[in-house]
């Protein structure tokens, strides 16, 4: 199955561009629109996390996204050269607090974990490598 690579810069405007290309790939590979929405949320969360918290300088950085599909599975890999950060080690968001006590920290990765089938993190050659898996009934 065809693999697709997308490279974006560490700017908010690039997130929407990447999400659009991810959805284009998913449509081409016959994944459902529902699956496309879930992955749009997941990529928005993961890329904004890298862009907002991953760098301790003001330089331009590249973030590499690799998309592939095998059988019913979609696999997305995000590689960045930011500071070492494993989002899966962050404390679980408390989703039962009342409105007045709600904090936003951790909600993004909570959404990714709940909406994806599997999320893996590895530190490889000074890069953060986050991989997500999502199965879908492809037509």
């Amino acid at each position: 199955m065809a693999e697709k690579t997308i490279v974006i810069k560490n700017k908010d405007e690039e997130i929407s561009k990447a999400v659009e290309l991810v959805r284009e790939y998913l449509r081409h590979e016959n994944f459902s629109e529902d699956c496309g929405c879930s992955l749009a949320v997941a990529f928005d969360e993961m890329l904004s996390n890298v862009i907002h918290h991953g760098y301790d300088d003001l330089s331009e950085h590249s973030i590499k996204i690799t998309l592939s599909a095998k059988g019913k599975d979609f696999i997305g890999i995000i590689e960045d050269d930011g500071v070492e950060f494993n989002p899966l080690l962050q404390p679980e968001a408390n989703t039962s607090l009342p409105l007045s006590e709600r904090k936003m920290g951790g909600l993004g990765i909570h959404l990714v974990r709940k909406m994806m089938d599997k999320v893996e993190y590895k530190r490889i050659k000074n890069k953060n490598v986050l991989t997500i898996f999502k199965a879908d009934e492809r037509k």
Binding site: C37, A40, V41, D44, E45, S48, L99, S100, R102, M104, L107, G108, L111
Partner: peptide, 16 residues
């Protein structure tokens, strides 16, 4: 089309 946690933050802020 979809809402991410940045959107949830917006509604939390508006509600307050």
């Amino acid at each position: 089309d979809y809402v991410s946690s940045a959107g949830l933050k917006t509604f939390l802020s508006l509600s307050r």
